[in-house]
Design a protein around this nucleic acid. Structure first.
Lengths: 348, 348
DNA sequence: CATGCTTGCGCAAAGCTTTGCTCAAAGTGC
DNA sequence: GCACTTTGAGCAAAGCTTTGCGCAAGCATG
């Protein structure tokens, strides 16, 4: 017998090694481990014990090669400075694991994706791809389409096509407008996000439309660039305005920016959420925004549901590639905090 | 052990399909694509063109099966509410890609890792594992050790053993102490993080030790729990103290907490970084902390270098599993912002 | 012309699992 | 005792790449 090729790794348990210890064939071990009824309980028990002792883990590579699924999902992450995305990531990892899938990060951050990176999608036989980035890297979309790899967008929607799950952003924006109007606010400002993300635009659009329906116009608009600093800059300018010109309500289209606005107002000694001050509302419901010192009035995204539906949609498209594309909008919940004045008579 | 149903993927190009179109053998295609010198330029050119046209991507699963490396690295992420971790993640993804590796997320967040998740490490033949979580999930460490999978900790160090890369936390803490003392601060407070993370403890220890060396004692200590809210709570208590008892310098052991402290002080109308106010310093140098409204004086972690060394160490251990364990400490840089009073005569 | 070296490429095995078939032994009914 | 079903398990192929070895043709040398 010739020497086996020098392996870097110490030999792990395989079906073959288990079969040899158990004195049965490889196929018997495979079937025993997978719970095939044709194997007698005695044999199965013996093999199970052996496998546990040897710390056997089936080789996913070999399994995938047989034409099954890899159990791997590609993930394209957007810029991480918006605190919503880290939360989304955590939830995605957890729920993917619950469904027996792992996430392979294809990209994170603002830069564009390298070609070599996109190739990984094919090399590793990824079962599908989730894009949470607000800016859709169209390269990955093309590759997915050409190779029939299902792709689902989470927290964003492409205008033309594609499957997506997101919060009903326009409705949330409208709900916030109602809330502010009901509380008697008269001069409204918006701090917008990236101009090219459906999410930011829809929130703003829903807000402004509801304002208009109820006979109000937007008094002021700032570009917050979807960053906390952008919010702070807007808040600083608001704080610097003479009180009579100052908006009494500010809708920052994401909590990150809203927190920045609050910080700036407070730094400028403008009270937040009190009569005579400025009311600030946000969107997303990230943990930090709900707690002191912010206690934002905001729209709570149903994060668990958004992620769950996203993954389910992706899994469904794996089974049934010709499924029609669909866009799922989940309604958020108005969370009443202390950052905005409340309608008279509300609560207590 | 649930196996996904076998599904027929649309046939992708394989070496075999390319070989048939080119009228050569599979091995010739393989060698041509890999640039083996034995293939004539003419043949290679023809095959290259064919491969490009067919969008061929080598099957990483098959390649891995041959005993080579998978090109996959497992990643264990800590709780994402500390803004340092999202930044670390971005950098990791980028640099892993530069080295031709992908990251598979094994775990994110505070919860403990499920066994099934840990199994993925073996099933997918991961080449190595990076643990950035401050709290080392010992389960994964055990699995790595038993299966000779290299593991590198980034931004944390285990007391007993293991390979790790981190900022020189104690030295950074000491540098901050010097800076505050040089500027004439007299009453020092620390806002600490998790009691069980080496990173937080080392920073605090280095700070207090230098204070002691120079004849000062720590006046006050708060537990900030490594969260921004924890920092805010500490800042609130500081703001509520009578000015004569109040510390004039606060070291929050991470920027996230430091920002919370600053917010709370300002909300309590305590000036930050000015004479007669409170100086606040942090640690990490996350982007948000460097910009307005915080402009923190802090220790800049050499993030790119930390990640780079971490990956290099991991790759080195793949080649040479018996390499001695090592701990690499990279020195941070003092970044002078506006959140702390400066020594007289400094600058200008 | 015989021999030997290059050049260029094919053969086949290995790596690990899953699964359709095949097959032997044991059990059942008459 | 015989034919037949059930039970339990093995054989072998497939899935895709990589790579050691072999082989044929072309060319130069003696």
């Amino acid at each position: 017998m010739d020497l086996p090729a020098p392996r870097l790794r110490p030999a792990r348990a395989t079906l073959l090694s288990l079969a040899q210890s158990a004195g049965v064939s490889v196929s018997t071990v495979s079937r025993a481990l997978r719970g095939d009824g044709r194997i007698s309980p005695a044999t199965r028990k013996r093999i199970d014990a052996l496998a546990t002792e040897a710390g056997y883990a089936p080789n996913a590579m070999a399994r995938t090669l047989l034409g099954g699924r890899s159990g791997l999902i590609g993930l394209v992450l957007g810029p991480m400075h918006n605190p919503f995305y880290p939360a989304l990531l955590e939830e995605l990892v957890t729920q993917a694991a619950e469904r027996g899938q792992r996430l392979v990060i294809l990209h994170a951050g603002e830069g564009s994706m390298e070609d070599r990176t996109a190739q990984a999608l094919l090399q590793y036989q990824l079962d599908g791809c989730i894009v949470t980035s607000a800016v859709l890297p169209s390269r990955i979309a093309t590759i997915c389409r050409e190779n029939a790899v299902p792709l689902v967008m989470v927290n964003r929607v492409a205008r033309e096509h594609g499957t997506a799950v997101c919060c009903d952003n326009a409705e949330g924006g409208a709900r916030l407008a109602d809330w502010l109007l009901d509380a008697g606010h008269a001069r409204h400002a918006v701090v917008g996000g990236h101009a090219d993300t459906s999410t930011s635009l829809d929130r703003e659009r829903g807000f402004v439309a509801r304002l208009a329906e109820r006979g109000h116009a937007l008094a002021l608009r700032f570009d917050g660039g979807s960053t906390r600093e952008g919010g702070w800059a807007a808040g600083t300018r608001i704080a610097a305005m003479p009180p009579e010109e100052r908006p009494d309500a500010v809708f920052a289209v994401s909590d990150g920016m809203a927190m920045g606005v609050v910080d700036a107002l407070r730094a400028g000694s403008v009270p937040v959420g009190e009569a005579g001050g400025v009311s600030v509302v946000g969107f997303d419901g990230v943990a930090a925004a709900l707690r002191p010192p912010y206690e934002l009035t905001t729209i709570l995204q149903p994060l668990r549901a958004v992620v769950g539906r996203g993954l389910d949609l992706l899994l469904a498209r794996m089974e049934e590639p010709d499924r029609p594309e669909e866009v799922v909008m989940l309604r958020g919940t108005l969370h009443v905090g202390r950052s905005a004045r409340r309608p008279v008579g509300w609560g207590i």
